[in-house]
Computed example of a mutant assay.
Amino acid sequence: MAFHNRSNSFPSRPHPIVQQVDEQLSRLRSSETTSTSSISINHNLSSIGDLYGCVDKLLQLPLTQQALAQEQNEKWINELLDGSLRLLDVCSTAKDAVLQTKAYVQDLQSIIRRTRGGESGALTSEVNKYLSFRKMVKKAIQKAMKNLKGSERKSTFSSPSNDNETVAIISKLRDVENITLTVFKSLLFFVSGPKSKPGSWSLVSKMVPTKKVACDEETEANEFAQVDAALHKTIKSENTQNQLQKLESCIQDQEEGLESLFRQMIKTRVSLLNILNH
Rank of each mutant, 00 (worst) to 15 (best):
M1K: 14
A2K: 15
F3M: 07
R6W: 06
S9F: 04
S12Q: 10
S12K: 11
P14G: 04
I17G: 03
Q20T: 12
Q20R: 14
S26M: 04
S31D: 13
E32I: 07
S37D: 13
S37C: 04
H43N: 14
N44Q: 11
N44T: 05
S47E: 07
I48G: 01
D50S: 12
L51G: 03
Y52S: 01
G53A: 05
L59W: 12
P62D: 08
A67T: 11
Q70I: 12
E71C: 00
E74P: 00
I77L: 15
I77T: 08
L80V: 01
L81A: 03
G83D: 11
S84Y: 11
S84E: 05
R86L: 14
D96P: 00
D96R: 12
T101H: 02
K102M: 04
V105H: 05
Q106I: 07
D107K: 15
S110V: 06
I111V: 15
T115C: 09
T115Q: 11
G118A: 03
G118P: 09
G118H: 07
G118I: 07
S120I: 06
A122I: 04
V127H: 04
V127M: 02
V127R: 11
S132H: 06
K135Q: 12
K135E: 08
K135M: 05
M136F: 09
M136N: 13
M136G: 11
M136I: 14
K139L: 09
A140E: 13
N147A: 09
N147H: 13
S155F: 07
T156G: 00
S158T: 15
P160Y: 03
S161M: 13
D163N: 15
E165T: 13
T166N: 08
V167M: 09
V167I: 13
I170V: 15
S171A: 10
L173M: 09
D175R: 14
T180L: 01
V183M: 08
K195H: 02
K195T: 10
S196N: 11
G199W: 06
S200V: 02
S200I: 02
W201F: 14
S202D: 15
K206V: 03
M207T: 11
T210G: 11
K211R: 08
K212M: 02
V213F: 05
C215M: 08
C215S: 13
E223S: 12
Q226T: 08
Q226R: 11
D228P: 00
D228W: 08
K236L: 04
K236G: 06
T240H: 05
N242R: 14
S249R: 07
S249N: 10
Q254S: 07
E255L: 05
E256G: 00
G257A: 03
I266A: 00
K267V: 04
T268Y: 04
V270S: 07
L273E: 13
H278K: 12
